[in-house]
Design a protein around this nucleic acid. Structure first.
Lengths: 151, 151
DNA sequence: GCCGTTTATCTTACGTGTAAACTATATTTG
DNA sequence: CAAATATAGTTTACACGTAAGATAAACGGC
């Protein structure tokens, strides 16, 4: 009764893929909903703020930011506009290159980001509470090496 | 030099989460792009077709479909409209409930779906080629149990 | 310095996601 | 049975994703 259409390796690959998509999708949904409810922000904004916080002394140009987020440039314009309207970031013309802008996290953004990050750590921990810590380490390592070989 | 702000468990949870998001995001992007290039379809449509193919004898109502895709009802209307325009599916009024519609996969949709599924199996296999098959089985099991405890 | 090319960002058009309000039909309940 | 409520699907408004083309500034070769 074994399906013969695909090889065993293909079947196992598909199974892993499906579980991976389902699990990470569900996890993302949980975190996104929590961020919305508690902070009125979503994962994209959290991602932007976390990159900006890391470089809060110098800021980042829009292009640099786009590169780190693996998002397209066209999209980021609108996202930053909305975040600017909410005063989470600042946008200043770059002196030595008139095409460019420097994006910085604002004081308000920093405050919100820190609260989000702390809560996020708790929520993630809760969501992964069923997993043994050694399994976690093993799986993390596994994923990071697997990801490198995707390129 | 160890960061004291978060517990070890929190730090490991965050690491795993980040790797999970990055890896599955990248994988999804790869598959989505391949589906677009080779079949002019994307993952959402592939997902819809795969659910409809499974029930190709009876079809599914829009609500049932929405439930399986974990997508909101509002969104599915437009998606199905576009797929209907491309003749991948059919939509017929349900006899015993005038509010409902039955969605079926069309012959054309079935053909395209099968080609997509075959290619998808190959692409996934390729993407996961660096992973040992025993590790694959182990992680599949790990993910499916972890997912259950998310609810 | 001028001209063609590259770069940084924006704009536009569109597909897809959510939430909330709306319409039409079914069902439940007094 | 009539009124209240629930359900199926659509519509609307908006956030966010991509791709392609436009614009302005910077760069590089001559």
């Amino acid at each position: 009764m074994t399906e013969n259409k695909y090889t065993e390796r293909q079947r196992e690959s598909l199974k892993l893929w499906i579980e991976l998509v389902r699990y990470s999708g569900k996890l993302e949904q949980i975190i996104d909903e929590k961020l919305r409810q508690h902070h009125g922000q979503n994962i994209s904004r959290f991602d932007v703020l976390s990159q900006l916080e890391r470089e809060r002394k110098t800021g980042l140009t829009i292009g640099e930011l786009a590169g780190r987020l693996i998002a397209s440039k066209g999209n980021i314009t609108g996202l930053l506009d909305r975040m600017l309207k909410d005063a989470l970031i600042t946008k200043t013309a770059k002196k030595d290159d008139k095409r460019s802008y420097i994006i910085n996290i604002s004081d308000k953004g920093l405050l919100i980001f820190k609260a989000m990050a702390d809560n996020n750590a708790k929520w993630i921990e809760q969501s992964l509470q069923s997993i043994d810590i050694d399994n976690m380490k093993e799986f993390t390592k596994f994923l990071s090496t697997a990801r490198v070989s995707l390129d």
